[in-house]
Structure formats: C-alpha cells, structure tokens
Deep mutational scan, measured.
Amino acid sequence: AEKTGIVNVSSSLNVREGASTSSKVIGSLSGNTKVTIVGEEGAFYKIEYKGSHSYVAKEYIKDIKDE
C-alpha cells in the first residue's frame, strides 16, 4: 500500500539512488514537498521521484499517511 509523507527540512533533502548515505545523490526535495512512499529499506523510504524510484532518509519525512 502506498503512503504519502511531507519533507520536513528547512532547506533541502537529498534524494539518493540507493538506501544508503553513501549512495549517489540524484536530486533534492525542498521542505513541505509531498512525497509518495512505495516502500522502506532500513533507515530510508523508497519514494516515487521523476518517474522512477529513489530513496530519502526516514528521519526527514513527517505526517505519514496511508493513501
């Protein structure tokens, strides 16, 4: 089941290729951006990003809701 969340950062949140802080950064999301969460892996959520799937750190996503 998909969930949505809100990016909870003051500046921007790195979007990564994989579920690791050493993964390549492929983009960023600004605070209060709504994201669609399709899964989770460790400390990361797998999200829909620009037509494919990428990862963001869970600690920076708030207001998780089931869609």
Rank of each mutant, 00 (worst) to 15 (best):
E67Q: 13
E67F: 11
E67H: 13
S52P: 02
G51F: 06
Y45L: 06
A57T: 06
G31H: 15
V56R: 00
E17V: 07
V15D: 01
S10R: 07
I61G: 01
I26S: 04
S20R: 04
G51N: 07
E41M: 08
V56G: 02
E2Q: 15
T33D: 09
N32P: 05
Y55C: 02
T21R: 08
A19Q: 04
S12R: 12
K3P: 04
S11G: 15
S30V: 12
G5Q: 03
K24F: 06
T4H: 11
E41W: 06
G31W: 10
E40Q: 08
G39R: 02
I47T: 01
S12T: 14
E17L: 07
V25Y: 04
H53L: 11
N8G: 09
H53D: 05
T36A: 07
S12E: 12
L29W: 01
S22H: 11
L13A: 14
G18M: 10
E2G: 15
I47L: 02
F44E: 00
L29S: 01
D63M: 15
E17D: 14
V9A: 11
V7T: 07
I6P: 02
H53N: 06
Y55I: 01
Y45V: 03
N8A: 14
K3R: 14
I6G: 04
K58V: 04
E40V: 07
V7H: 02
V15F: 02
R16E: 01
I47W: 00
E17I: 08
E17N: 08
S12G: 13
T21H: 15
L13G: 05
E67G: 12
E41S: 09
Y49P: 00
Y49I: 03
T21G: 09
T4G: 05
K65V: 13
A19C: 06
E41F: 08
G31E: 08
L29G: 00
K24L: 09
I37T: 01
K46D: 02
G39V: 01
G42L: 05
G5Y: 06
G51P: 01
S12I: 10
Y55M: 01
A57Y: 10
E67L: 14
V56Q: 00
D66Q: 12
K62H: 10
N8E: 08
K65T: 14
S30K: 14
A57I: 08
S52L: 12
V38Q: 04
V15N: 01
G31V: 11
V9C: 15
I61P: 00
Y55P: 00
S52K: 13
E2A: 15
A19S: 07
V7R: 01
S11T: 14
Y55E: 00
I64R: 04
E41K: 07
A1V: 14
S11W: 09
I6E: 04
E40I: 08
N32D: 09
S22T: 13
N8D: 10
E59N: 07
G42A: 06
H53P: 07
S52Y: 10
T36E: 05
E17C: 08
V15S: 01
K3T: 08
T33F: 06
L13K: 02
G42S: 05
S22E: 14
N14G: 09
D66T: 13
V35D: 01
D63T: 14
T33K: 06
S20G: 05
E40F: 05
H53I: 13
S28I: 11
V35A: 01
S23Y: 05
K3L: 10
I26H: 04
V35R: 00
A19P: 15
I26Q: 04
V7K: 02
A43I: 09
S22Q: 11
Y60N: 08
G42P: 02
S10D: 12
R16S: 06
V9N: 07
T21W: 15
V35C: 04
I47S: 00
E67K: 11
I64M: 08
K46A: 07
K34M: 12
E59Y: 08
N32H: 09
A43G: 13
T4S: 09
V25W: 05
K24T: 08
N32Y: 10
Y49T: 01
V7E: 02
E2S: 15
E59S: 08
K58M: 08
G51W: 04
K62G: 11
S12H: 13
R16D: 01
A19R: 01
K58E: 01
V25I: 14
V9P: 08
E2Y: 15
S10A: 13
N32V: 05
T21Q: 12
A57D: 10
L13C: 15
E2L: 15
F44A: 02
V7W: 02
N32A: 08
S10W: 08
K58H: 02
G51T: 05
S12V: 13
G51V: 02
K46R: 09
G51H: 06
K46G: 01
S10N: 11
S11P: 10
D63P: 12
Y49V: 02
I26W: 02
V25L: 06
I64Q: 06
T33P: 02
L29E: 01
Y45M: 03
E41P: 00
K34G: 04
E17W: 05
N14H: 13
Y45W: 13
G31A: 15
S23L: 03
E48S: 09
Y55L: 01
L13V: 15
D66G: 11
G39T: 03
D66R: 06
G39I: 02
A43D: 15
E17T: 06
T33Q: 10
S20L: 06
I37S: 00
I37C: 02
A57K: 11
I6H: 05
I64N: 06
Y49F: 12
G18E: 13
S12C: 15
T21F: 15
K34R: 12
Y60F: 12
K50W: 07
V25T: 06
A19L: 03
S20Q: 06
K3H: 08
S30P: 15
S30A: 14
D66P: 12
I26E: 02
